[in-house]
Amino acid sequence: MIPALPDPMVLASAVSTRDRLALAQALNLLDDRRPAARQCAAAFLDALPVEKLDAGGHLIGITGPPGAGKSSLTAALIQVWRRRGLKVAILAVDPSSPISGGALLGDRLRMHASGADREVFIRSLACRGEFGGLSAEVWPMSLAMLAAFDIVLVETVGVGQKEIDVSKMTDTTCFVAQPASGDSIQFLKAGIMEIPHVIVVNKEDIGMAARKTLSELKTTLGRRTDADGWHAPALSASAALGSGIDALADALDSHRHWLLERGQFAARRQRCQAEWLVKHLREEFGRYGINRLGGENTLFAELASAPRRSPIAAYEDLRSRVIPNIQ
């Protein structure tokens, strides 16, 4: 028996009450590529409570070069959030093997501190060689998790300047810098890398090298702000010692507050979805597809004022406009 498709309404209501088995099934559904499953997934996303998708929870991206300690920092953050009574879901993206397409999803191991806590939910995702190190499922899965958890954190492996791609699909992005490695600073200086909302130098326990990296980052960031006017703070922390983690959690939260106070929160979520749609289109059809829809600027403008819908339905819609008569 091929897995039967769930009733999308029932599933959505179970997910929003944080039924763990329902959420697991929902994530499986959002991963399911069969056409009938895509329709079911679209209906499921449409049935999720709108207020949670527009303004609920906090969707955080954490990224940085391999070895910077993203997972151990995530583990430390989970503990802080749990102490604050927040329920946490994690999407951990690992690279796939370019040869076999198989993958080793090892991040749970490094976040093991969560042990048997039922208010922490971790799903690993293989990036499956697509979406520039992200996985196309990240956005729809984030939405399902936002319907049930206070914090949804997306952890991605950073590769050079693409490190920051995740920032376009989250409320707040945290970049973990490796002490004594100048790469990230160079990318920032050259303007190749978009500025994250919070920068943290991990491993402050190693001392001098971490302090030096922090001060260089602070100098580089200077008074620069992002397009919205946010000035990214640079912090240091140590996942090993548990130091600086509370301050990091505070810094992430203050960006959420800042968005809320300025009334930009819902707009940012909508922008995330637009970014996902455009990225997805570009992945499938290249520049040809984007041009068929009037080019990037027109497309973003259109999406900014479009009524909210599930990303899957919206994508199918755009797709059918790129290729007329597509089913």
Binding site: S96, S97, I99, S100, G101, G102, A103, L104, L105, G106, R108, L109, H112, G115, A116, S124, A126
Partner: peptide
């Protein structure tokens, strides 16, 4: 992994609950 499965492996000493 080499024959195309996605593998979740968390190392040693897990409880049945985990």
């Amino acid at each position: 992994r080499d024959v195309g499965f996605e593998i979740v492996y968390e190392g040693i000493r897990l409880t049945p609950e985990q």
